[in-house]
Design a protein around this nucleic acid. Structure first.
Lengths: 151, 151
DNA sequence: GAAATAAAGTTCCTTTTTAGAACTCACTGT
DNA sequence: ACAGTGAGTTCTAAAAAGGAACTTTATTTC
């Protein structure tokens, strides 16, 4: 299978990854959440090649994750902002951050920590079932197949 | 920057992605959670080339996400199972599934749904702060920088 | 007991993607 | 007029992925 055929898959993991699953894309989104909006800033912070950056920004815009906004007429200059779809990606990043902090050894202290905007207290993201409040993990959840074709 | 220099970054997003952030890796993990354990099965379900699959399995093992277990002596045959580190990745996949279901249009009904092992009821994963129980998202959480160097 | 099948890779070659650097284009400020 | 800024594009080389065939150690079928 080719990577770009992924978006046609029925599985939500595959569809999600067809948007954010290639190299750099999630790092671009991380920077968006840290307030980065402009091409030069992304490029400098990430060390990504300009070529690839332009491509990823285009794709994220096409997917409705980022929105391109003109911030200067003449010369026309654009910046990139998270759409609601993009902002809704935050929980995925937070889950990933949690996992990495628990399991991928770091070379030093993390450059930022997550605090409540409200109280300033450190937060510890945790996944629960919105209906029951029970914790959700591989022990409590089961994948129920709809039809037996592979996902 | 080169992709393989990512693991040296201090940012947990970068470190996490240094393990799971390339093409195919998260799809392999998805299949692991669906019970797949063997090379041939991964290869057939994913349509990944054998070459790349072997490489990814090796890397996941090296990262402590999968464990290689001999299931046949003579001929020596191995299968791959999630370690505790691997199992703990489940919330990341669930978050991604939620996002994709909300925002990436699908070509049909999803091939599986997530139910409680306990009650059989559909579950709706939601991220909260483990300390306060408050919902966690881009509006309620702030990244607090430790030092101002880029992440 | 020879031939086909199986499972987990490896090898080889081609195509696609990424890295790295330089260049363009439309201005602005000095 | 000349350097600088910002968002890209273009070019070439290197790295990674796709695709198919091959290897190795057995087991099953004719």
């Amino acid at each position: 299978m080719r990577w770009n055929e992924l978006s046609k898959e029925a599985c939500p993991v595959a569809r999600g990854l067809s948007v954010v699953g290639d190299r750099w894309t999630m790092l671009i989104l991380r920077d968006c959440f840290l307030g980065i909006r402009r091409f030069e800033q992304f490029q400098e912070r990430l060390g990504i090649t300009r070529h690839v950056l332009a491509d990823r920004l285009r794709k994220l815009e096409a997917a409705g994750v980022l929105q391109r906004e003109r911030y200067s007429e003449r010369p026309a200059r654009y910046e990139y902002r998270l759409t609601e779809t993009g902002k809704d990606f935050y929980p995925v990043l937070l889950s990933l951050i949690g996992w990495a902090n628990r399991h991928v050894p770091s070379g030093g202290p993390p450059p930022f920590e997550l605090v409540s905007r409200d109280t300033g207290e450190r937060i510890e993201p945790k996944l629960i079932d919105g209906n029951t409040g029970d914790p959700v993990n591989h022990r409590t959840v089961r994948a129920l197949w709809r039809d037996e074709k592979t996902a």
